[in-house]
Design a protein around this nucleic acid. Structure first.
Lengths: 203, 203
DNA sequence: TTTTTCCTAATGGTTTTCAAGTATATTTTA
DNA sequence: TAAAATATACTTGAAAACCATTAGGAAAAA
């Protein structure tokens, strides 16, 4: 089964796989819900699953699929720029991971290997996984609710007194939070903090 | 001609266009340079051009193509999430703009229309263009080289004295630049400036 | 229920930024 | 080459941010 919201990608996969012995394309879908509906009544051996579906996020597709048909092997198709979700995907139980610039050979290899019970990860994916493992060490300190509030207000350019007024607390308290924030994030001042926060998705 | 770094997309386009009267796929390429090399010696009527090529950015492909063969019509293929480049593309002289979730009908329509000398922009693209036009009013003030230097150092968390030392200028000068920056960007302090700069791609 | 974390607030400093105006050499550009 | 823009530097004050430390009560976790 092929699931991808781009008809042209589906066509491409079809023609890449058409002449291949042992591979038959049973059905294709362009969104998540109809895929799940189909799996309520039918099953397949292997699913080629795009991560960018219009309705349901790729990561959130894996469990629902496996809940319905735990025997199906999922091969994820994505592009380079989605490194952050790779490890989530792998952990959620997908058996293969390919980039969309894959050639016909690698594609059929992956399908056969996964069908036989193995796994297949693209070379690039393996590098991304290694990097993710390395980054895991440098995990972000977690901020409290109040700290996030204040971080946002600082990033909005508010001054301590403005923030205090807005939150109905003492300016001294705001200062305390600000100092704790800078300590936690290991930055020397607010400007650096805003940058760090934006780079790390805290804002 | 089709230019896309994903073989499966090329295959998909081929099979979508194969049976179409009046359309013949002369050649396909998966990177920018070989496309340009080909156009040195050959020409085509219409190019379907992906914006995500491994070597040359899609925007930077348009002019080199038109310099070689000013008669070719370029139809750009992209995904939703690349809105920022749409207006650049349109202005650079492409004749069509499609999203990759295009169906066979729209695709052939676009090709025929463009070949006849017209233009064809996806509905979604027209919305993006309208938004871009609205934003054009709020155009960024341009910063001088030195101001950019100092903006970067501020965003890195450096203090005025550090910056002065690093650039071998007086701290007073740095303060002047800082003041001009805040005035130009209409922000009340450094934290807001960093945020603004990051949101607007100045950093 | 005890322990820990979080939010709150204070004291008392020092340093840095922000504001507004002025001024001169040096590049750029028209 | 003349005019405009840019980079440089200074003065003077006020405002705000930053630093270190302590501490009580509330809320959440063990």
């Amino acid at each position: 089964m092929i699931v991808d919201d781009h008809p042209m990608v589906i066509e491409g996969l079809k023609s890449l796989l058409d002449d291949e012995d042992g591979i038959l394309i049973k059905d294709c879908f362009t969104d998540g819900q109809s895929t799940l509906d189909y799996l309520d009544a039918n099953t397949v051996d292997v699913i080629l699953l795009d991560v960018n579906l219009p309705d349901i996020n790729g990561v959130d597709m894996v469990q629902p699929i496996l809940n319905r048909r735990k025997e199906v092997k999922i091969i994820v198709l994505s592009t380079y720029n989605e490194g952050s979700i790779v490890s989530k995907m792998i952990n959620s139980g997908v058996k293969g991971y390919l980039l969309k610039n894959v050639g016909a050979n690698e594609l059929t290899n992956a399908i056969h290997q996964v069908f036989k019970g193995g796994v297949y990860y693209d070379k690039t994916i393996q590098i991304i996984l290694a990097e993710a493992a390395a980054q895991e060490f440098v995990q972000l300190p977690k901020l409290t609710r109040r700290e996030k509030d204040i971080l946002n207000l600082i990033a909005a350019g508010k001054r301590t007194n403005d923030i205090a007024e807005e939150l109905f607390i003492s300016p001294l308290t705001v200062e305390t939070h600000r100092r704790n924030l800078m300590q936690k994030l290991k930055v020397p001042n607010s400007a650096a903090m805003v940058r760090f926060a934006m780079e790390n998705g805290l804002i």
